[in-house]
Write a protein that binds this DNA or RNA. Structure first.
Length: 960
RNA sequence: GACUCCGUAGCUUAGUUGGUAGAGCAAUUGAUAUUAAUCAAUAGACGAUAGUUCAAGUCUGUCCGGAGUCGCCA
């Protein structure tokens, strides 16, 4: 064996693993092997983009691979799969531009992705790879959709049930016993009425209850992409992908009744091990507020008191939602959203013009404008009043755009003493501010939202505390039918339709009655038809409208929208358990064995998209008895983004134009010269030194006849800045290049060494040499180069011996075992790499080449650097390729025990000397000897110490 | 504006219940050696401030600086 050759060795083992399916886990049916505990390590489903992988992508994959390899050594049966979320917008946008079928582009991208991934030596079981755009996969995505359509949410049992249990209830007792999550306009009926309905009528009724349903919804329409987008796909008023403007539009859409699960999605967060930041984001997104809904009767001139208004007429009430019903005696005005449906009826003739003007002005202001100036107070009086039911006082009704039509009821009871926005509004319009708690302070200067103290000016709750008052008031409201305790969520049902081509067709057709029906399950998968163009039809139908003769059973119109990107990724972790199953999405046996994902690693960008929808679908499948776990991902880690480090050359201003050759100045020679920084490809820069020749060749357009003002030593130093890694900034580092030059093991170690997994950090190839040197130094513990000039010069010599290790060597080894194990369990991979370096440095210093030590070290390092360790494992005489079946070294604390401890001796908290004592030495003896010590005596200057602290095996502190 | 997290050497970072601040890169020096390095050695740090303590990178308060999330949510 010559000097370590990473290119040959890594390729050899990658091929070996591939051919032998080394990382295929035991099937649950294989009783003997499957008796091992299971471990499921999953990477977030990547979308195979055309740009391929850059060094930032594999960061999480490396981490999960290390854990997977470690768990195998620890005796687990490990499921570690990889597959692709291969439907998506970029391939379709490309198809629109080029006319090429998105499947073709996607296939090409996939091939490259897989090749790049294989180069890094991941221990994936590639036989399980899935692709969402494959009909054998999306058949089951469509099947889940059908199951959702065939289900309703029973609030009494608090779970989804088959629609049949609802039909039974209707048939026996009408809607009386039904406590369901359903549409707002759902009619009530008796059993007799139900049983008298036509088939179509009753079917139409059920559409109000199904977990997926059609609705006219105000959606985020993105004309630039020709589709609607979900709320989480819109950022700051533009599409997340592409940055196109998004507008609000009313369209008929498939919806998912995710709101049925709002409360469970919230409480489920308490039992899973995710980062607090992601949980917080999901909590914000779900937005639960506990409060009360209260009806304020509208006051009218001819019926001048509350009691004479007939409560049966719904139009005579303004319903509000409040989280502070306890402050209701402090209500001095009412504010409605300009879009509120009661506004026309409430506006009095003399306020007509002012209100109309305000509404049209509010409409013109975009969401962004409204957000931007939160300080300006605006609003208008409608001329009408309502009655505070508690004290019969007249309350003026205003409109203001600080109240949102889409939240709660679009109306707010304003309590200026307790709410700052209400306070600002009241001050601006000269409305009264009534204190309601004796704990409120300085309400002439600002609102005080305290819950402390006792109520004042508050009728039936005077003298009570917050809790008491709230229950008293709600009971009062409920007794009179004027309100009730209520929980409100900010989360809305999810829009599920996309007016695009490259997605799963919705398995629905429309009958002559215009109602949606599921296609027959036997007809799944409903495959994507061919179309001539990937654009909407002339009549504005989605691209599927172009498919010639695409009709169900030859006559019924299919649903023409496709499913959103998150459909296929909301259940995929089950498919890996049983990827080839043709009769079920995964067999019960495999799901019962693998259960759910133990470790899930991925980016933070899916916080409110994929990670929320997946939990939703999982809970649904759980309710319906298809899966055994309520939460899909037990432990979630978000890897930090790897940023790019851009390099710049500096061109002197005024040069590089027609007839004026460019002059480039090295960083330290700028001396205040006026220059233009230009991005330069980081791949022709090493340690901030530019390869001028390579630059000339790469950019002849810039460098023709160019002059370079270099440092005195002739080098050109570039500038640097941390930015997002992107093609346009010439700072993309391709892992293939790193693998070619340094090897996959070095790439893996280095990516981990960069810093804590969860932290964002810039890529900087500079430090990689240190890791490369470490690998070679590690190799030299096993092989020695033959001296130059000897007959076998250039060859290496195996120098591992069978001698018994010394205590010092065992101490080094076991210190490393302990650290490595603790680090992996804590997902602290960067610190492990550092401890490997220390270990190899120390063993080299000890001149240790002993099998008993090195073999264990090979195992410790193998999750991080699988290729070189597999090579050495074989060289140590083991069956080639069996490294992953070995057992992780066992830590033995006895090797760390020393019989003496070197005590640091502090004088007034500062270390002044050290003295060695036997570990079992009594504290009073240590104290005596320390005080007798020469150096301590010198610090004491003859005085006697005030106090001596002796902490066994830690420290001694002498206080003077 | 609210909430969460973070400030350790030139850079990237480790530091468990408070108990001698450890690495790698870069830098400098030396040796082997010469187009490519290898080895050895050297030096260098707790954002500021006040407190608790025998003892503070670690705990508490305030300030300064940075990152992320939410965004009028009644």
């Amino acid at each position: 064996m010559a000097e370590y050759n990473h290119r040959e060795t890594e390729k050899k083992w990658q091929d070996f693993w591939d051919k032998n399916q080394t990382y295929r886990p035991a099937e649950p049916s294989d009783k003997l092997s499957a008796a091992r505990p299971k471990y499921y390590a999953l990477d977030m489903f990547p979308y195979p983009s055309g740009a391929g992988l850059h060094v930032g992508h594999p960061l999480g994959y490396i981490a999960s691979d290390i854990v997977s390899r470690y768990k195998r050594l620890k005796g687990f049966n490990v499921l570690h799969p990889m597959g692709f979320d291969s439907f998506g917008l970029p391939a379709e946008q490309y198809a629109i531009q080029t006319g090429q079928h998105p499947a073709v582009t996607t296939e090409a991208n996939l091939t490259r992705y897989i090749e790049q991934l294989k180069n890094i030596g991941f221990s994936y079981d590639w036989s399980r790879e899935v692709r969402t755009s494959d009909p054998s996969y999306y058949k089951w995505t469509q099947w889940v959709f059908m199951e959702l359509f065939r289900s309703w949410y029973n609030k009494d049992t608090n779970k989804a049930e088959p629609i049949e249990t609802l039909l039974d209830k209707f048939a026996t007792n009408g809607t009386t016993d039904v406590n369901a999550v359903c549409d707002e306009n759902t009619p009530a009926f008796t059993a007799a009425e139900w049983n008298a309905m036509s088939k179509q009528q009753s079917y139409a009724i059920t559409l109000h209850y199904r977990l997926t349903y059609l609705a006219d919804a105000v959606v985020n329409w993105c004309p630039g992409l020709g589709t609607v987008l979900a709320n989480d796909e819109v950022k700051d008023g533009v599409s997340e992908r592409g940055g196109y403007p998004v507008e609000q539009k009313l369209m008929r859409q498939w919806m998912m009744r995710i709101t049925a699960y709002a409360d469970r999605l919230l409480t489920g967060l308490d039992v899973i091990d995710w980062t607090e930041s992601i949980k917080e984001q999901q909590r914000n997104w779900i937005g639960k507020s506990v409060g009360a809904s209260v009806k304020f009767p509208v006051w009218s001139a001819d019926t001048s008191s509350f009691s004479s208004i007939p409560p049966s007429s719904p139009k005579t009430f303004i319903e509000v939602f409040t989280t502070r019903v306890d402050t209701i005696y402090g209500v001095t005005f009412m504010v409605l959203a300009p879009e509120h449906e009661l506004v026309p009826g409430l506006t009095t003739p003399d306020q007509q013009d002012a209100v109309a003007a305000y509404i049209s002005a509010a409409k013109l202001r975009s969401e962004r404008d409204r957000m931007a100036d939160t300080k300006a107070v605006s609003g208008v009086f409608t001329g009408s009043y309502c009655i505070n039911p508690f004290n019969d006082e007249k309350v003026p009704i205003f409109l203001a755009d600080y109240v949102l039509a889409g939240y709660g009821t679009g109306a707010v009871m304003a309590v200026p003493s307790g709410d700052q926005r209400d306070w600002t509004f009241a001050t601006h319009f000269g409305l009264p501010i009534v204190p309601i708690l004796d704990g409120q302070k300085d309400i002439d200067k600002q609102a005080d939202n305290t819950k402390e103290g006792q109520y004042i000016n508050s009728g039936i709750v005077n003298g009570m505390s917050y809790k008491e008052a709230t229950t008293t008031l709600i009971a009062w409201l409920e007794a009179r039918g004027l309100g009730r305790g209520k929980i409100n969520f900010r989360m809305r049902d999810a829009v599920f339709s996309r007016q695009r081509y490259w997605g799963e067709p919705v398995p629905v057709y429309f009958n002559e009655d215009g109602l949606p029906y599921l296609i027959d399950e036997a007809d799944l998968p409903l495959e994507l038809p061919a179309v001539d163009k990937y654009l909407p039809t002339e009549t504005g139908e989605p691209p599927l409208g172009r498919a010639e003769g695409w009709r169900y059973k030859g006559k019924y119109e299919y649903e023409l929208s496709t499913m959103p990107g998150w459909a296929g990724s909301s259940w995929y972790w089950y498919r890996y358990m049983d990827p080839k199953n043709e009769t079920e999405f995964a067999s019960k046996q495999t799901i019962d064995y693998w259960q759910n994902v133990d470790l899930y690693i991925g980016g933070t960008e899916h916080a409110t998209g994929h990670l929320l929808y997946s939990r939703f679908w999982n809970k649904f499948l759980y309710d319906r008895g298809y899966v055994p776990q309520d939460e899909p991902f037990k432990k979630l880690i978000n890897q930090g983004m790897i940023q790019g480090r851009s390099n710049f050359v500096y061109r002197v201003s005024g040069t590089g134009r027609e007839g004026v050759p460019a002059v480039f100045v090295s960083l330290n020679q700028l001396n205040g010269r006026e220059v233009t920084p230009l991005h330069v490809d980081v791949n022709i820069v090493e340690n901030d030194v530019l390869d001028i020749e390579a630059f000339r060749q790469a950019r002849p357009d810039l460098t023709e006849a160019a002059e370079f003002i270099t440092e005195p030593d002739g080098r050109y130093i570039v500038g640097a800045e941390v930015e997002k890694m992107s093609k346009s900034k010439f700072n993309v580092v391709n892992p293939d290049m790193i693998v070619e030059r340094y090897g996959a093991d070095v790439l893996r170690l280095y990516e981990m060494f960069l810093g804590p997994l969860e932290q964002a950090k810039p890529w900087n190839t500079n430090g990689i040499d240190g890791v490369y040197r470490f690998i070679r130094k590690f190799w030299r513990l096993f092989y020695k180069d033959s001296a130059a000039g000897t007959p076998d010069a250039g060859a290496s010599q195996w120098i591992v011996t069978d001698e018994a290790p010394t205590p010092a060597e065992l101490k080094v080894l076991h210190k490393t075992i302990q650290k490595t194990e603790a680090d992996i369990e804590a997902y602290s991979f960067n610190t492990s790499v550092s401890s490997f370096m220390i270990c190899v440095n120390e063993l080299a210093t000890l001149n240790c080449h002993k099998r008993a030590v090195l073999q264990e070290l090979v195992l410790l390092l193998s999750p991080y650097a699988p290729h070189i360790t597999e090579e050495l494992w074989a060289a140590l005489g083991h069956e080639p390729g069996t490294l992953s079946q070995a057992a992780f070294p066992t830590f033995n604390p006895n090797f760390l025990v020393e019989d003496a401890f070197e005590y640091p001796i502090q004088i007034n908290g500062k270390v002044r000397t050290t003295i060695s004592f036997a570990v079992d030495r009594a504290a009073n003896e240590i104290e005596r000897e320390v005080l007798a010590d020469e150096i301590v005596q010198k610090w004491l200057e003859g005085k006697s110490p005030k106090k001596v602290v002796v902490v066994p095996k830690r420290i001694v502190n002498v206080v003077i």
